[in-house]
Design a protein around this nucleic acid. Structure first.
Length: 765
DNA sequence: CAGCTATGCGCC
DNA sequence: AAAGGGCGCATAGCTG
């Protein structure tokens, strides 16, 4: 947004601020000047021509049907095309398509304008193709079944479906997903960054949309300028694909277990990630029906509750009004407002630790006001703050936010799923995030409902991660427990603590509760889940409400009874140290470069110390002097010998010598924890995606009107017409159970819940 | 204002 | 001595 159209605000703006802003928008080769739209387009035009003008002969604009037809023939001949779409925004449903870019080898990259308008009059620009004409030509590519390469295909697929009506548009190679699989630690996954780094070898800079057109919709950019930018994208997508293709291919003669090469990763690409794209696109297009009226009722209900909580907090503060006033008098510059802002952690910290002088609970962060800390503070104010936060979170993040996310055309929420959101391979959800809707609270999820005449269906994998872990450990006793339908935690407890299975259950056979059994079971559970998360013994002890020593003994017993568990931990660590990465059951990689770090790094304090030998003319003046090996060894010896708490002294000692010691201990420990967790969480993610593919592409379910709505990691939410619920339910459960059969021998059972609204009352059929 | 980090918290 | 994996997002508070 430019300076001139910044909305008027109450705050006074100094001239200095305005000057600073003007300076801030100037960047490199991009100049911003002028205030009117006409001036700004002129500036953009100049920028584009200066930076992309070199492509003017390489790229073409296709403005008639015959040229388009000929280009499509070239694509089919080549059996490959890169496609990119240009739109007025990022919403494939509400925003409009502006043009399509194509590139096929040995041809000029082509831009096909469809919906450009004059930035002066707003009238539709001349010499563009009709959407229908473009659609019918693109349909020929689809019918021919040629390779279609895209970057972040889900978006372009949705645009082409919604804007051009291309129902069967597909993608064979998504460079975004390939890039994520090839290096999930890549600092940026933007097309231009990846192309710049891997195709151009960082030789030249490329400009992003915002750097070129910030704040201007693409349909207002004149065609003779726009094509330079747009066609470029299709071309670099293809070039990135050619780069990736060299490394990611599946060798039939090589098993997916080949963990040294890319075979496992390629298998995941072709058999999990790529087939998943259209399923995810379907879910986003479908959306989920939202009950705005019910949300309004919740707003009323929870607003009253919030008022109560705030008032309760202030009422409790009144007991300390003298102390608060005294504090304000002594600390006139403090951040404490009057009244206190309950939502401000810094003000709460002042209240609790400075005014009420409560002893810090957590020595590591003595001024924390987090939930865990507040729960331990025995003061009604702490409780009041927690209650306030609970309600305010519900209102701001869900009750008041979600209604604004509803698409006015269909009353549904179409969020965005990032298919490779987490580095482990898990999906994520945003705008809004539908994977963190409260489940503990029974009101919130009910805002999501089935379509009229439909019923909601949810199916989850029970104990997905423990099952995956059992499979990867390969422990026969654990596998047997699942095969016999036993409770894994109880079985582990029984065999670890030398007692019977029945003695490790919460309930006795006669239905009465067995506190000792419950305790044994939860101990075994804590140990197993602790391994899964890389949790430390003291933390497990805290969870179990016991001493660290006790927890260590419990862990020892479990590890002794189930040596496959520590063996699996060790194998995972070995794999990561040897190969630099761990793998999932299906071959996805999680690279952990931090594991290769030295525990301590030694650097000169003032950056680099240059070679001080003035007489050594041979030496490059940038040559750094290494820190003498004996000095490094001296400190390493000290650090290895020292007790905890003495580290800092040694660091300071080195500091006085001008040496800066970097302690990588925490990073290495993080990576070690990730070794086990990434394998389990990643394998579970593979499994859930396989289920989505099987369910989402099932022809029979499609016939029945069944559609997936939301994946929540180990759970799939869907809906289907009520009259088909019975068949859908059975087929849904069966497909989910079968999805992981290729690698999981443990029995998988899925129960399907039928409801009218999410987590609402069960519907019987 | 835009954009960043820190803190805190919802989910699996 | 302490030791929880993976996300997205709201608000506060700071900076450019």
């Amino acid at each position: 947004m430019a300076l001139f159209d910044v909305p008027k605000r109450n705050t006074k703006e100094t001239d200095l601020n305005l000057v600073k802003k003007t300076q801030a928008v100037k960047k490199q080769n991009v100049v911003r000047a002028g205030n009117s739209l006409i001036d700004r387009i002129a500036t953009i035009k100049a920028n584009v021509e200066r930076n992309l003008g070199k492509y003017s002969s390489e790229f073409i604009v296709i403005q008639d049907e015959i040229s388009l037809h000929n280009y499509i023939l070239h694509c089919i001949e080549n059996n490959a095309v890169a496609i990119d779409t240009e739109t007025t925004g990022l919403d494939p449903i509400l925003d409009t398509i502006v043009g399509v870019c194509l590139y096929t080898p040995n041809q000029q990259a082509a831009y096909i304008p469809i919906n450009h308008i004059s930035y002066v009059t707003g009238a539709k620009a001349d010499n563009q193709l009709e959407a229908e004409a473009v659609a019918s030509e693109l349909d020929k590519l689809i019918k021919a079944g040629i390779d279609i390469i895209m970057f972040n295909a889900k978006f372009d697929i949705r645009v082409l479906r919604n804007q051009l009506g291309l129902k069967d548009i597909y993608c064979t190679w998504d460079c975004y997903l390939a890039a994520r699989l090839m290096n999930e630690n890549e600092p940026s996954n933007a097309l231009k960054k990846l192309h710049q780094k891997y195709v151009l070898n960082d030789a030249e800079d490329e400009f992003t949309y915002d750097e070129m057109f910030k704040g201007i919709e693409f349909n207002k950019i004149p065609i003779n300028v726009a094509y330079l930018y747009a066609a470029h994208d299709a071309k670099i997508t293809y070039e990135l694909y050619e780069f990736q293709k060299k490394y990611m291919y599946y060798d039939e003669t090589c098993s997916p277990e080949d963990r040294n090469g890319m075979n496992g990763v390629a298998w995941v690409f072709f058999n999990i990630e790529m087939p998943c794209v259209s399923v995810v696109a379907d879910m986003e297009d479908t959306g989920v029906l939202f009950d705005i009226l019910y949300a309004k009722k919740l707003h009323e209900k929870y607003s009253v509750l919030l008022d109560e909580k705030v008032n309760n907090f202030y009422r409790l503060c009144e007991d300390y009004s003298e102390e608060i006033n005294q504090y304000l008098k002594n600390n006139p510059n403090s951040k404490l407002e009057q009244p206190i802002n309950v939502a401000s952690p810094s003000q709460i910290a002042i209240l609790l630790y400075d005014i009420l002088e409560i002893e810090p609970v957590d020595q590591k962060s003595p001024r924390s006001t987090g939930e865990a800390v507040l729960q331990k503070i025995d003061n009604p104010i702490a409780k009041a703050i927690l209650e306030y936060r609970e309600v305010s979170k519900l209102i701001s993040t869900y009750i008041d936010k979600l209604p604004n996310c509803v698409n006015p055309r269909d009353g549904r929420i179409h969020c965005s799923f990032n298919q490779y959101g987490a580095d482990t391979g898990r999906m994520s959800s945003s705008d809004p995030n539908l994977q963190n809707i409260p489940s503990h609270n029974k009101d919130i999820r009910k805002m999501f409902t089935a379509s009229d005449g439909y019923v909601l269906m949810s199916s989850d994998y029970s104990q997905q991660e423990p099952k995956v872990m059992t499979q990867m450990c390969g422990d026969p006793k654990m596998i047997k427990a699942y095969q016999e339908g036993k409770d894994l935690y109880a079985e582990i407890a029984a065999l670890s603590f030398n007692t019977t299975y029945d003695n490790c259950l919460e309930f006795r056979p006669d239905g009465t509760t067995n506190p000792e059994g419950k305790n044994r079971r939860s101990q075994a559970k804590s140990i197993l889940l602790g391994v899964l998360y890389g949790r430390g013994v003291p933390s497990i002890a805290e969870q179990l409400g016991t001493s660290t020593e006790k927890a260590q003994k419990i862990k020892d017993s479990v590890f002794k009874g189930f040596p496959a568990i520590p063996q699996f931990e060790q194998d995972s660590l070995d794999m990561a140290y040897e190969l630099g990465y761990v793998t999932t059951l299906w071959g996805r990689k999680r690279r952990l470069p931090d594991l290769q770090l030295d525990e301590y790094e030694f650097k000169w304090k003032d950056g680099s110390r240059l070679n001080a030998d003035i007489l050594n003319f041979e030496a490059n003046e940038d040559t750094e002097v290494d820190i003498p090996e004996e000095t490094i060894q001296k400190y390493l010896r000290k650090l290895r010998r020292c007790r905890f708490g003495e580290k800092r002294k040694i660091f300071e000692e080195a500091n006085k010598e001008g040496i800066w010691i970097v302690d990588n201990g925490a990073k290495i420990a993080d990576a070690q924890r990730q070794c086990v967790n990434a394998r389990i969480q990643g394998s579970a993610a593979d499994m859930s995606k396989l289920a989505m593919i099987l369910v989402g592409k099932d022809e029979r379910l499609k016939e029945l009107g069944f559609r997936l709505l939301i994946p929540v990691h180990d759970e799939l939410i869907a809906e289907c017409p009520i009259e088909n619920a019975k068949e859908c339910k059975e087929r849904f459960a069966q497909l989910m159970s079968d999805a992981a059969k290729s690698r999981l021998t443990i029995p998988i059972k899925c129960d399907v819940e039928l409801t009218k609204s999410w987590y609402g009352e069960s519907v019987n059929i």
